[in-house]
Design a protein around this nucleic acid. Structure first.
Length: 293
DNA sequence: TACCAGGAACGGG
DNA sequence: CCCGTTCATGGT
């Protein structure tokens, strides 16, 4: 087993970052579901290390001013990226408006960072997020992992990697329904098949933001909101602001002039209001703030 | 019991 | 293009 420490040069809250409803591809070592306010434990996830097609487990925890990782490969760079540890929160905050709601959200949850999930897992998990609560979205991903994922080992413990596109494409709709995916089951299966057949969600990174969002909606079960989640939480479009029920309610109450009717026009107006480049960061803080009040 | 959850696909106007 | 309806499932 390899191990390393990543020194932190800014605020970072591991539990907040992983349990705030951005990522569903990690799990707690104590097995508890996301959304609770339990004490911190260690967190695990899986990844593919470089050119190695085999999945590898990663375990992380906070220790003082460092993030400690354990894995079967040298995972420091992957962990830093996955957890947004290279983001300069000072720069992010300086780019957002001096606005009561925004400042209040930053103050209340300072140290939350935007994750960078692997594109396929991010895509599938947010397809599953439709009309669903955080803890249940997380539970679905755990069942997908344990049912279809490849077993991997880390210092004697056996875990299951998040399934590959091939593994999910080979699943039947009924098998997915048996995991309580509901009407999302065929969406996940069909999208997995598209990716298994060569369509890569990560390829939209070559496109400008709004064009990339439209491209992603070609996947089954992906509308504009889910596309924005994938862009923000997987593909590093930090200007993306997913407009869900919480954000629409926020717009109605705090930024009524940003309601322009259509998704695209409202999104653009709110994005400008939240400072543009890092609007997604502000959105994620506000989302969590509103949801926990 | 009725309602809701980080919506999307589908059909009709 | 815009609108209403339908789609599972578990918690409250």
């Amino acid at each position: 087993m390899k191990r390393g420490e990543i020194p932190l040069d800014g605020p970072f809250d591991l539990r907040l970052t992983l349990e705030s409803g951005q990522s569903y591809l990690w799990w707690r070592e104590d097995g508890a579901s996301y959304g609770s306010t339990d004490a911190d434990t260690r967190y695990l996830t899986t990844t593919r290390a470089g050119d190695d097609p085999a999945p590898a487990p990663i375990r992380v925890h906070r220790d003082g001013d460092t993030v400690v990782w354990e894995s079967t490969f040298d995972a420091g760079d992957v962990v830093r990226r996955r957890l947004g540890l290279d983001d300069d929160l000072g720069t992010v905050r300086a780019s957002t408006p001096d606005d009561d709601l925004v400042e209040e959200a930053f103050d209340a949850h300072w140290g939350l960072r935007i994750v960078r999930d692997p594109p396929f897992g991010g895509l599938v998990s947010f397809i599953c997020s439709a009309q669903m609560r955080v803890a249940r979205i997380h539970g679905m991903q755990q069942r997908l992992r344990e049912t279809f994922g490849t077993p991997v080992e880390l210092d004697g413990e056996t875990y299951h990697a998040y399934p590959t596109p091939d593994q999910l494409a080979a699943a039947s709709e009924q098998e997915l329904r048996d995991l309580s995916l509901g009407y999302r089951a065929p969406y996940v299966r069909d999208t997995a098949e598209m990716v298994a057949n060569g369509s890569r969600p990560g390829e939209v990174r070559d496109e400008p933001y709004e064009e990339a969002r439209e491209t992603l909606t070609r996947y089954v079960g992906v509308g504009q909101k889910v596309a924005d989640c994938v862009l923000l939480f997987s593909l590093e479009y930090l200007q993306a602001i997913p407009l869900d029920t919480w954000m629409r309610q926020m717009i109605e109450e705090y930024y009524p002039d940003c309601d322009r009717g259509s998704y695209a026009d409202t999104s653009r107006a709110l994005r400008d209001r939240l400072g543009g480049e890092y609007a997604g960061y502000a959105q994620t803080y506000i989302f969590y703030h509103l949801r926990t009040q």
